[in-house]
């Protein structure tokens, strides 16, 4: 067995062991994750142990130059077509927004949450950047977004407001 074979076996072996370690929530695993820039270490715990049971809704509204505020409108994050089992292009952009909204929700639920940290968070800036391109009236002065949580098709309770941003000039 030559050196190439040994190197390949070692490479696969380390990768496989790394994947096994990555399934755990230890602090040192989080340390390894920081260096997984290309995300080659998967986490295979699909919908477990705590499956997502909440729908998050991203809403926005505008304020015009006369300080008149529009109604909230929803960015559709959940609609799917019958053909989505073959072709589901919109899933990609919805997944990003969904991940960002979930991250915002996590930040807001932290015990040590503060307003400045929320406004400077990656997810806040990302959502705001996305909303600036939403078609709007010419006299729009600023934009605000909100995140609402609901239980899904069969509603077990009233939707709850998770987060509401400031108005931002656009």
């Amino acid at each position: 067995m030559n050196y190439i074979f040994i190197a390949v076996i070692a490479f696969y072996g380390i990768w496989f062991l790394g994947t096994i370690c990555h399934q755990f929530d230890y602090k040192w695993v989080a340390g390894i994750r920081k260096f997984d820039y290309f995300r080659i270490l998967p986490r295979w715990t699909f919908f477990a142990p705590n499956p997502g049971t909440t729908d998050y809704h991203l809403l926005y509204r505008h304020m015009d130059k006369n300080d008149q505020v529009s109604d909230f409108k929803e960015i559709p994050l959940h609609d799917r077509h019958a053909s989505s089992f073959i072709w589901n292009a919109s899933k990609r952009s919805k997944k990003v927004l969904f991940d960002l909204v979930q991250e915002m929700n996590r930040i807001c639920n932290r015990e040590d949450v503060n307003e400045a940290a929320v406004k400077l968070s990656f997810s806040y800036i990302c959502i705001l950047n996305f909303l600036t391109k939403i078609p709007k009236a010419q006299d729009t002065k600023s934009i605000q977004f909100a995140i609402v949580a609901s239980s899904g098709f069969i509603e077990y309770g009233e939707p709850t407001l998770t987060f509401c941003s400031d108005f931002h000039h656009v």
């Binding site: 295979w44 477990a48 142990p49 705590n50 499956p51 049971t53 729908d55 994050l77 098709f153």
Partner: peptide
Amino acid sequence: AKGISQKWRGGQAIIMIMNTKTYG
């Protein structure tokens, strides 16, 4: 991961996932 989850063992997980508009 599902086996250690009460929601999966108790039979609520699938119905809860299917009830979400995101994946259900």
